[in-house]
Design a protein around this nucleic acid. Structure first.
Length: 446
DNA sequence: GCATGATCATGC
DNA sequence: GCATGATCATGC
C-alpha cells in the first residue's frame, strides 16, 4: 500500500528519514504543477486535518485509512501533522492541542491500559510540526520540527492514570461529565463538527459529548524544547510510589501542615532566604524536593500553576491575584476562548495556603488542586466583556471594579503610572490587568 | 478592614 | 528593557 521506493514502511527510522526531507520546506515544494492545482482546489476549512491527509496522500503516497491501527501499520508509527506558532520573542509554541483520535465509549469501558486501542495506535508518533501563519495557503506552510516521538516511562505512568480516570468515568455511566480539567497529560477534549456532536455511552442512556484523546499544548511544548531540560526537575520519587499523582503531592505536604514557615525551612535543611519575595513558593517547592530555581516538570507538562496564598487571620487572602496586563488595542479584537485571561484562569491550580497566626508568623494551613468551575468562568467572561465594552466606549475611568463582580475586577498592573499601553482611541493609559478577587479566593480555600 | 491606586522584584 | 508575579500605600 505504501510506496516502497521512497521509504521502508516496516522501519520507523526510514520513515522518519524520508519525512525529514520536508524540514524547512513545504508540501508545494514536492508536488508537480498538476498536483498543486489539484490540491489548491481543496477547501481545508471544510476538511479538518486537511494538511495531514494531503501529506499522507501526496508525500508518503498511501491511501488514508481511518483504521484503529497506526498509519504506518508495519512500523507501528502514527503520523501527526500539527501547527506551531511563533511568539514575539521568536520562540516556537504549539498552536493547539494534539488530537489523538475519538474516544469510543463502548470500547474503552472494557479495555485495559496495556492492551488499549489508544496505546496500540499512539505509542510511536511521527510528529510533523509546521509554522502556521494567517493568510498563507496550507500547501506553503513550512515544516520546522519533524521527529519520531515515544513517551518516556515516567510520562506513561501519568498517562495511564489519566486514561484510567477517563475509562472509569465512562464505566460509571458518566461520560457526559468528562472534562479536560480532569486529567494531567492526556485530555478528553470535545471533538466534532460543532460542540453539539454527541454519541451513546455504554452505562447510561444520556448521550455524551463526543470527545477525543488529546495532548495539551503545554505537554507538546516540552517536546519542542527538549534541549532545555535543565530548567525542569522531575518528581523522581513519585515514580517509586503507587500513589496517584495529585495524592502524592498532597501527601508530601501532610507532615508540614500547621508548621511555621521558617520551621519548615529549617527541617528541610534547604536554607532558603526568608526575605525573598518568593519565599513561600520556594519553601513549597522544597517540600516537593524541587530546587527553588527549577520548574516542576510534571506541573509544566500538565499545565498546573502553583500559587502560594497568604491568608490574613480572618481567612481572607492578603492580596488579590494578578494576571498579565492586557493591551487595550488587542483585547478588543479577541475572542474569550483565545484570550490570555481565559487561558490563565482555566488552568489547573495548585494552591499552597499559608495563614498568619496571632503571633504574626506564617503557618502552612492547607494545600489543594483546583479548577475554576464553569459558572465562575462565565462570570469572569462577563467582567472581561464589560472591560472591552468600556475600552471601546473610551471610558477608562469606569473599568469593572470589585463592585461589578465578586469574582474578578480590573486594576492597574504597571511599573508606575507612566508605564502605559496605547489605546484604540490613540491615547495612553496605565497598564492594567484582570484580577481574581481576594474574597473569591477566600471562598475556594476555606 | 476593604477597595482602589500604585509600585516592587525577578528572570529572561 | 520588559513581562509577570507579587506586594505596598492611601483613603474612606
Amino acid at each position: 500500500m505504501q510506496n516502497q521506493a521512497l521509504y521502508d514502511n516496516t522501519d520507523p527510522r526510514s520513515i522518519e528519514k524520508y519525512a525529514k526531507k520536508l524540514s524547512n520546506k513545504c508540501l508545494s515544494d514536492f508536488l508537480s504543477k498538476k498536483g498543486i492545482s489539484k490540491c489548491r482546489k481543496i477547501d481545508v476549512r471544510k476538511r479538518k486535518g486537511g494538511l495531514g491527509n494531503l501529506i499522507e496522500e501526496f508525500y508518503f503516497q498511501y491511501k488514508i485509512n481511518p483504521n484503529p491501527e497506526p498509519d504506518f501499520n508495519k512500523a507501528g508509527v502514527e503520523l501527526k501533522v500539527t501547527p506551531l506558532k511563533k511568539l514575539k520573542s521568536g520562540e516556537l509554541r504549539p498552536k493547539e492541542r494534539l488530537v489523538m483520535g475519538i474516544i469510543d465509549y463502548k470500547k474503552i469501558a472494557n479495555e485495559k491500559w496495556k492492551s488499549s486501542s489508544f496505546l496500540k495506535k499512539n505509542s510511536l508518533i511521527l510528529l510533523m510540526m509546521y509554522l502556521y501563519a494567517k493568510g498563507v495557503n496550507f500547501l506553503d506552510y513550512i515544516f520546522l520540527i519533524i521527529t519520531l516521538w515515544s513517551y518516556s516511562k515516567n510520562d506513561l505512568r501519568i498517562m495511564k492514570e489519566d486514561w484510567e480516570k477517563i475509562r472509569d468515568k465512562v464505566k460509571a455511566g458518566k461520560a457526559e461529565e468528562l472534562s479536560e480539567g480532569d486529567t494531567l497529560y492526556l485530555g478528553a477534549c470535545t471533538k466534532g463538527v460543532d460542540k453539539t456532536s454527541t454519541r451513546e455511552q455504554p452505562h447510561s442512556s444520556i448521550r455524551a459529548k463526543q470527545r477525543a484523546f488529546s495532548l495539551k499544548p503545554t505537554y507538546l511544548r516540552l517536546i519542542i524544547s527538549r534541549e532545555k531540560g535543565e530548567k525542569y526537575q522531575e518528581l523522581t520519587d513519585f515514580y517509586k510510589t503507587s500513589f496517584k499523582f495529585e495524592d502524592y503531592i498532597i501527601q508530601k505536604f501532610q507532615k508540614y501542615l500547621g508548621l511555621e514557615i521558617n520551621e519548615i525551612n529549617k527541617r528541610l535543611k534547604v536554607d532558603l532566604n526568608p526575605k525573598s519575595k518568593t519565599y513561600a513558593v520556594e519553601v513549597s517547592k522544597a517540600i516537593l524536593g524541587v530546587h527553588r530555581k527549577k520548574q516542576i516538570a510534571e506541573f509544566e507538562k500538565a499545565n498546573i500553576v502553583m500559587k502560594a496564598i497568604r491568608l490574613k487571620k480572618n481567612g481572607t487572602p492578603k492580596e488579590d491575584m494578578s494576571f498579565p496586563a492586557f493591551k487595550y488595542k488587542e483585547i478588543i479584537h479577541q475572542k474569550w476562548e483565545d484570550s490570555e485571561f481565559y487561558e490563565k484562569i482555566s488552568q489547573k491550580f495548585f494552591f499552597v495556603v499559608f495563614q498568619y497566626g496571632e503571633d504574626k508568623k506564617l503557618y502552612l494551613r492547607n494545600v489543594m488542586f483546583w479548577n475554576m468551575p464553569n459558572k465562575d468562568l462565565k462570570e469572569a467572561k462577563r467582567v472581561w466583556r464589560e472591560t472591552i465594552k468600556r475600552i471601546k466606549a473610551n471610558d477608562y475611568k469606569n473599568l469593572p471594579s470589585k463592585k461589578f463582580s465578586d469574582v474578578s475586577h480590573v486594576r492597574p498592573h504597571a511599573r508606575n503610572k507612566k508605564d502605559v499601553y496605547e489605546t484604540p482611541q490613540g491615547g495612553f493609559e496605565t497598564k492594567k490587568c484582570l484580577w481574581l478577587n481576594a474574597g473569591y479566593i477566600k471562598k475556594i480555600v476555606n
